[in-house]
Amino acid sequence: MNDPSTVPPTDEETPASQGTRILSNMESLIRRHPVAAALTTLGFGCAVGIVARDLLTPQPTPRDRAMQLLEEIQSRLTEFAEPAYDRASHLADDGVSAVKRGLHAVSHSSLASRLSNLFS
């Protein structure tokens, strides 16, 4: 009697015929759905490009990462401190104006003429 496990199947395909069948199926799928095939190809190309860029771009050194972090901190501190700096600058200008007005007023007073006579 023949054991069914030892008899090779009769409808088995060779690797070459499997490849031909797969290519034929892909071609018919592309012909039925050309837009989807084009978008799939575009997406696959983008994915390959992104992966290639990531693999080919050298990784930043720890020093470069630290410098980038410090530059970002400096930028944020500048944004945070700018309103306070502007306010302090306006207050300083107001203070200088007040001192000038005070000195001008003192120079026209009788006390200024007495002091100038004292030191002359």
Rank of each mutant, 00 (worst) to 15 (best):
M1C: 15
N2D: 15
N2Y: 12
D3R: 03
S5G: 07
S5I: 09
V7K: 14
D11P: 00
E13W: 06
P15F: 05
P15V: 02
S17A: 12
Q18H: 14
G19D: 13
T20I: 14
T20V: 13
R21N: 10
L23R: 08
S24F: 05
S24E: 02
L29V: 07
L29S: 03
R31F: 08
P34F: 01
P34C: 02
V35T: 09
A36H: 11
A38Y: 02
L39M: 06
T41R: 06
T41I: 03
G43W: 00
G45K: 00
G45M: 02
C46V: 05
A47T: 05
G49D: 00
I50V: 06
I50F: 02
I50H: 01
I50G: 04
V51W: 04
R53Y: 08
D54I: 01
P58M: 03
Q59T: 13
P60A: 08
R63P: 00
R65T: 10
R65A: 11
R65C: 09
E72V: 07
E72P: 06
I73F: 14
S75Q: 13
R76N: 13
L77M: 13
E79D: 15
E79A: 14
F80P: 05
F80Q: 14
F80R: 14
A81P: 02
P83Q: 12
P83C: 13
P83M: 11
A84M: 12
Y85G: 07
Y85C: 10
D86R: 15
R87C: 12
L91H: 01
A92I: 04
D93F: 01
D93C: 10
G95Q: 07
V96C: 09
V96E: 08
S97W: 09
A98N: 12
L103S: 00
L103I: 05
A105Q: 09
V106H: 15
S109P: 01
S109D: 08
L111N: 13
A112D: 05
S113T: 08
S113M: 14
S116A: 15
F119G: 09
F119Y: 15
S120K: 14
S120I: 03
